[in-house]
Amino acid sequence: MSVLRRLIPGKRDMLGTIGAGILLFVALGAVLAPMIAPYDPTAISLLDRMQPPMWLEGGSLAHPLGTDNLGRDMLSRVIYGSRISLAVGVAAVIVGAAIGSTIGIVAGYFGGWVDSILSVVINAQLSFPFILLAIFILSTFGGGFWPVVLVLALGAWVNYARVVRGTVMSVRTQDYVHAAISVGVPTLRLLRTTVLPNTLSPIIVVASFSMAQAILAEAALSFLGVGVDGANPSWGVMLNDGRAYLQTAWWLTAMPGLAIAITVLGGNLCGDWLQDRFNPRIGN
């Protein structure tokens, strides 16, 4: 993104607005899915199977993005798929941010051996191949919404922990922290009322990037067959379903793939913009 930004100087805010707009659009689609989806995403109609998108020969307005191997409407499936992808992304961000920020604050504030131990844990987690860990856990304990969220949070917390640790290390040297200590504020309360609020902006930035990553990772896990098993398919499950028909019906994979790409782009644009906004040297 930074390359793109350099090519268009002064357009950071515009790109950020586009990113936020994309996320809002996807979120609205997810919330309003029952109202805007033209069909039931699970309704099978074998007579209409494998219809191409409407702009191709043989396509029709009845199914703008075509149908899949069981004749289900692709547009409706993509719209409904956003519900699971976004829900997983948001939940993973919340759980990951809570775990990672807590560990980062503790490591950064107390320093010393506490920091040494937590840093070893952080580095160990960083050096472990995430997808292997995820497959191992999900195939052992089974998939589903919350297991996937927890696994994604397990992969994401280090990002928060590292950034928060660094920020807290500089925040704790500030006079307002010394002032709170000399006033006699208990340590836990000090972390909550003084340190955390001053660490929030990097957390929000990481959350924005991390949301995009979580959506991507959920798709990867579903593609590998260890993802969220629900009545409504996620984008990753759709990718997996369409894999067998790549040669004959590419839209089965292209449509959910495009949806993932656009959403992730939105998250990244948004994160990039927030990062600049919160950086006093670049932002305003």
Partner: peptide
């Protein structure tokens, strides 16, 4: 600590900005 308090040099950094 309630019986002895401190006032810092730089009022721009001694107040929690948030």
């Amino acid at each position: 600590r309630s019986r002895f308090q401190m006032i810092f040099q730089d009022p721009y950094s001694s107040l929690n900005p948030k």
